[in-house]
Protein backbone atom coordinates (compact mmCIF):
# COMPACT_ATOMS: atom_id res chain seq x y z
CA UNK A 1 0.00 0.00 0.00
CA UNK A 2 1.18 3.47 -0.81
CA UNK A 3 1.67 6.09 1.88
CA UNK A 4 -1.13 8.18 3.15
CA UNK A 5 -1.80 11.29 1.05
CA UNK A 6 -2.19 13.25 4.28
CA UNK A 7 0.17 11.73 6.89
CA UNK A 8 3.80 10.78 6.70
CA UNK A 9 5.24 7.84 8.62
CA UNK A 10 6.72 10.29 11.07
CA UNK A 11 3.24 11.76 11.56
CA UNK A 12 2.00 8.26 12.34
CA UNK A 13 4.85 7.61 14.80
CA UNK A 14 4.20 10.87 16.60
CA UNK A 15 0.43 10.41 16.52
CA UNK A 16 0.56 6.87 17.91
CA UNK A 17 2.97 7.87 20.66
CA UNK A 18 0.68 10.75 21.56
CA UNK A 19 -2.42 8.54 21.21
CA UNK A 20 -3.91 10.92 18.63
CA UNK A 21 -7.13 9.13 17.82
CA UNK A 22 -7.45 10.67 14.36
CA UNK A 23 -3.98 9.53 13.30
CA UNK A 24 -4.36 6.13 14.96
CA UNK A 25 -7.62 5.65 13.09
CA UNK A 26 -6.01 6.67 9.79
CA UNK A 27 -3.13 4.27 10.40
CA UNK A 28 -5.47 1.46 11.34
CA UNK A 29 -7.70 1.99 8.31
CA UNK A 30 -4.80 2.48 5.90
CA UNK A 31 -3.21 -0.90 6.51
CA UNK A 32 -6.32 -2.98 6.95
CA UNK A 33 -6.90 -4.00 3.35
CA UNK A 34 -3.28 -4.98 2.90
CA UNK A 35 -3.27 -7.29 5.91
CA UNK A 36 -6.66 -8.74 5.06
CA UNK A 37 -5.30 -9.61 1.62
CA UNK A 38 -2.27 -11.27 3.19
CA UNK A 39 -4.38 -13.37 5.57
CA UNK A 40 -6.75 -14.47 2.83
CA UNK A 41 -3.83 -15.43 0.66
CA UNK A 42 -1.98 -17.46 3.35
CA UNK A 43 -4.88 -18.90 5.31
CA UNK A 44 -6.48 -21.34 2.96
CA UNK A 45 -8.28 -23.06 5.82
CA UNK A 46 -10.04 -19.78 6.76
CA UNK A 47 -9.48 -20.50 10.45
CA UNK A 48 -7.83 -17.18 11.15
CA UNK A 49 -10.10 -14.32 12.13
CA UNK A 50 -8.93 -11.35 10.08
CA UNK A 51 -9.98 -8.70 12.56
CA UNK A 52 -8.52 -10.51 15.57
CA UNK A 53 -5.16 -11.03 13.96
CA UNK A 54 -5.04 -7.51 12.53
CA UNK A 55 -5.78 -6.05 15.95
CA UNK A 56 -3.01 -8.19 17.50
CA UNK A 57 -0.63 -6.87 14.86
CA UNK A 58 -1.70 -3.33 15.67
CA UNK A 59 -1.15 -4.02 19.40
CA UNK A 60 2.39 -5.22 18.74
CA UNK A 61 3.19 -2.32 16.42
CA UNK A 62 1.59 0.33 18.63
CA UNK A 63 3.39 -0.97 21.73
CA UNK A 64 6.72 -1.09 19.94
CA UNK A 65 6.24 2.48 18.76
CA UNK A 66 5.27 3.62 22.24
CA UNK A 67 8.26 1.79 23.75
CA UNK A 68 10.48 3.64 21.23
CA UNK A 69 11.56 0.42 19.56
CA UNK A 70 10.94 1.93 16.11
CA UNK A 71 12.89 5.15 16.25
CA UNK A 72 14.96 4.34 13.17
CA UNK A 73 12.80 3.10 10.30
CA UNK A 74 14.70 1.35 7.54
CA UNK A 75 11.57 0.88 5.46
CA UNK A 76 8.06 2.31 5.24
CA UNK A 77 5.92 1.83 8.31
CA UNK A 78 3.36 -0.05 6.25
CA UNK A 79 6.10 -2.57 5.27
CA UNK A 80 6.90 -3.05 8.95
CA UNK A 81 3.23 -3.70 9.64
CA UNK A 82 3.10 -6.17 6.77
CA UNK A 83 6.12 -8.15 8.00
CA UNK A 84 4.85 -8.19 11.57
CA UNK A 85 1.48 -9.46 10.36
CA UNK A 86 3.20 -12.03 8.20
CA UNK A 87 5.21 -13.44 11.09
CA UNK A 88 2.29 -13.47 13.49
CA UNK A 89 0.14 -15.15 10.86
CA UNK A 90 2.76 -17.87 10.38
CA UNK A 91 2.87 -18.43 14.12
CA UNK A 92 -0.88 -18.72 14.26
CA UNK A 93 -1.00 -21.10 11.34
CA UNK A 94 1.73 -23.28 12.83
CA UNK A 95 0.06 -23.20 16.22
CA UNK A 96 -3.13 -24.34 14.64
CA UNK A 97 -1.25 -27.19 12.98
CA UNK A 98 0.64 -27.94 16.18
CA UNK A 99 3.79 -26.72 14.53
CA UNK A 100 5.58 -25.23 17.46
CA UNK A 101 9.21 -24.39 17.69
CA UNK A 102 11.38 -25.54 20.53
CA UNK A 103 13.04 -22.24 21.18
CA UNK A 104 11.29 -19.30 22.67
CA UNK A 105 14.15 -16.99 23.28
CA UNK A 106 15.09 -16.78 19.63
CA UNK A 107 11.81 -17.25 17.90
CA UNK A 108 12.38 -17.82 14.24
CA UNK A 109 9.89 -19.01 11.70
CA UNK A 110 12.40 -20.59 9.46
CA UNK A 111 12.72 -19.61 5.87
CA UNK A 112 9.28 -18.01 5.42
CA UNK A 113 9.70 -15.78 8.40
CA UNK A 114 10.53 -12.13 7.80
CA UNK A 115 13.70 -12.30 9.89
CA UNK A 116 14.27 -8.56 10.06
CA UNK A 117 10.98 -8.08 11.89
CA UNK A 118 10.84 -10.87 14.44
CA UNK A 119 8.25 -11.35 17.14
CA UNK A 120 9.76 -12.33 20.47
CA UNK A 121 8.44 -14.93 22.87
CA UNK A 122 7.27 -12.42 25.40
CA UNK A 123 5.00 -10.75 22.82
CA UNK A 124 3.53 -14.06 21.73
CA UNK A 125 2.99 -15.16 25.32
CA UNK A 126 1.47 -11.81 26.22
CA UNK A 127 -0.99 -12.08 23.35
CA UNK A 128 -1.99 -15.54 24.51
CA UNK A 129 -2.22 -14.39 28.08
CA UNK A 130 -4.59 -11.55 27.14
CA UNK A 131 -7.15 -14.17 26.14
CA UNK A 132 -6.86 -15.91 29.50
CA UNK A 133 -7.29 -12.85 31.69
CA UNK A 134 -10.91 -12.35 32.67
CA UNK A 135 -12.89 -9.85 34.64
CA UNK A 136 -12.33 -8.69 37.32
CA UNK A 137 -8.77 -9.97 37.59
CA UNK A 138 -7.74 -8.30 34.35
CA UNK A 139 -8.89 -4.92 35.73
CA UNK A 140 -7.37 -5.47 39.17
CA UNK A 141 -3.99 -6.39 37.66
CA UNK A 142 -4.29 -3.44 35.28
CA UNK A 143 -4.97 -1.13 38.22
CA UNK A 144 -2.00 -2.67 40.07
CA UNK A 145 0.58 -2.57 37.29
CA UNK A 146 -0.57 0.08 34.82
CA UNK A 147 -2.39 2.62 36.97
CA UNK A 148 -0.26 1.76 40.01
CA UNK A 149 -3.17 2.04 42.45
CA UNK A 150 -2.67 1.01 46.09
CA UNK A 151 -4.93 -1.46 47.87
CA UNK A 152 -7.19 1.20 49.31
CA UNK A 153 -7.76 2.73 45.87
CA UNK A 154 -8.44 -0.69 44.39
CA UNK A 155 -10.93 -1.41 47.20
CA UNK A 156 -12.68 1.88 46.57
CA UNK A 157 -12.82 1.40 42.79
CA UNK A 158 -14.03 -2.19 42.90
CA UNK A 159 -16.21 -1.64 45.99
CA UNK A 160 -14.35 -4.11 48.22
CA UNK A 161 -14.84 -3.92 51.93
CA UNK A 162 -11.35 -2.65 52.71
CA UNK A 163 -7.74 -2.68 51.59
CA UNK A 164 -7.13 -6.12 53.06
CA UNK A 165 -9.95 -7.56 51.01
CA UNK A 166 -8.54 -5.85 47.91
CA UNK A 167 -5.07 -7.19 48.74
CA UNK A 168 -6.41 -10.71 49.12
CA UNK A 169 -8.38 -10.43 45.87
CA UNK A 170 -5.37 -9.07 44.02
CA UNK A 171 -3.24 -11.88 45.47
CA UNK A 172 -5.67 -14.49 44.24
CA UNK A 173 -5.77 -12.93 40.78
CA UNK A 174 -1.99 -12.75 40.56
CA UNK A 175 -1.66 -16.38 41.69
CA UNK A 176 -4.07 -17.57 39.03
CA UNK A 177 -2.40 -15.42 36.40
CA UNK A 178 1.03 -16.77 37.33
CA UNK A 179 -0.21 -20.34 37.05
CA UNK A 180 -1.65 -19.62 33.59
CA UNK A 181 1.43 -17.71 32.47
CA UNK A 182 3.69 -20.50 33.69
CA UNK A 183 1.63 -23.04 31.78
CA UNK A 184 1.99 -20.98 28.63
CA UNK A 185 5.73 -20.70 29.09
CA UNK A 186 6.08 -24.40 29.89
CA UNK A 187 4.13 -25.34 26.78
CA UNK A 188 6.31 -23.17 24.62
CA UNK A 189 9.50 -24.56 26.05
CA UNK A 190 8.30 -28.11 26.01
CA UNK A 191 6.83 -27.76 22.57
Amino acid sequence: MKGSPFFTDQDFLNGIRGEDHLIEKAFYDQNYDMIRGLIKKKDSSKNIDVDDLYQEVMVIVFMRIKNNELTQLTAKLSTYVYKTAHNLLLYRLRSNNRMKTSSLENYDFAEETQSDVSIDTLEIMALEMVKKLTYPCNEIIEDWYIHKLDYEQIALKHRYKNANTAKKKKGDCMSNARVQAKELLDNKFSG
Binding site: V59, L122, A126, V130, L133, M174, A181
Partner: peptide, 10 residues
Protein backbone atom coordinates in the same frame (compact mmCIF):
# COMPACT_ATOMS: atom_id res chain seq x y z
CA UNK B 1 4.30 -12.19 30.61
CA UNK B 2 1.54 -11.00 32.95
CA UNK B 3 2.77 -7.43 32.89
CA UNK B 4 3.06 -7.41 29.10
CA UNK B 5 -0.34 -9.02 28.66
CA UNK B 6 -1.92 -6.33 30.78
CA UNK B 7 -0.28 -3.68 28.62
CA UNK B 8 -1.55 -5.47 25.53
CA UNK B 9 -4.99 -5.82 27.01
CA UNK B 10 -5.27 -2.09 27.53
Amino acid sequence: VIHKSIQYSV
